[in-house]
Design a protein around this nucleic acid. Structure first.
Lengths: 148, 148
DNA sequence: TTTAATAGTTGCAATTTGCAAGTAATTGTT
DNA sequence: AACAATTACTTGCAAATTGCAACTATTAAA
């Protein structure tokens, strides 16, 4: 079984597609990156801009502008931190929360549909394997800056 | 185990990173998409532009310009088809082949490193699971345009 | 107190994107 | 054979996205 690369190449592509096809909720259209940003703001506890940008491995300047856009769309709110006046705390607005939840639902629908093509045993094995893979990738010291 | 979404969100991100960190071979710098293009041209048999663009689910106009760039870099060659004069057959130049092979090697190195954090049993299970997942995703009728 | 580091914002300039509209060649229809 | 409809690919925008360099403001370190 030595076509790992092939497998990853295709999976990467599929994940990319999966990634892109979030992203229109009612009249609101958001990009892939924006959906990741919403996801992380929702997940983390009172995150600063730098924190989310780091999590997503994004350039802070690009991130800053994305947040400006999301703030204009009234999906994200920037609140100056009282502890440190350099910092903004990010949070979702009600609408932002709604959008994030909608995306979450449709993602779950999609994933359930995908896993419906497997039997219970396969499902469990695959999930456990993805967890293993995730862990292994996080341990890797090759990825990602040193990779080439 | 109902945090599928979480798992996929992070994996998607990792795969994205993995994807980006190909791409400088000696003095040659290529983008993620370009590396996918090289990969597919190498893999397919005398592919036309439309074929590769379809495989990668890319807009044909974007693709056309990417190929122009790769041709200027002398990594890809466009040969007019003799069968159908509307069509160009794509192929890798010697340099293009070299770049594709180099990327392949470093990807394999990376993947081997990742899998080195598992024992033999886990490795096999994970690979088999990824194959299953891949198959299930390809069967899905929700993905990708209908997804939201 | 001065210096260094951190958080975040702007000014470019380059690249990338996709739609609309185009050319050229091929296929289908009558 | 003649005309219409498709297909393969290219170009013209105009908008969006990118990252580096340089900036302000604040905080931490010497």
């Amino acid at each position: 079984m030595e076509n790992k690369r092939e497998l990853f190449q295709v999976l990467t592509r599929r994940f990319g597609l999966l990634n892109k096809n979030c992203c229109s909720i009612g009249t609101v259209e958001i990009s892939t990156i924006q959906s990741h940003i919403l996801y992380e703001i929702d997940k983390q506890h009172e995150p600063s801009m730098q924190q989310i940008a780091d999590t997503l491995a994004m350039d802070i300047t690009t991130f800053s502008r994305q947040i400006q856009t999301l703030a204009k769309m009234e999906l994200v709110k920037k609140t100056p931190s009282t502890q440190d006046k350099r910092v903004y705390i990010l949070s979702l607005t009600v609408q932002g929360k709604f959008v994030a939840t909608s995306i979450d639902e449709s993602m779950n629908n999609y994933l359930n549909e995908v896993f419906s093509h497997m039997n219970e045993f396969e499902r469990e094995t695959v999930i456990r394997s993805l967890e293993l893979l995730n862990k292994a990738m996080s341990k890797s010291n090759v990825c990602c800056s040193t990779m080439c």
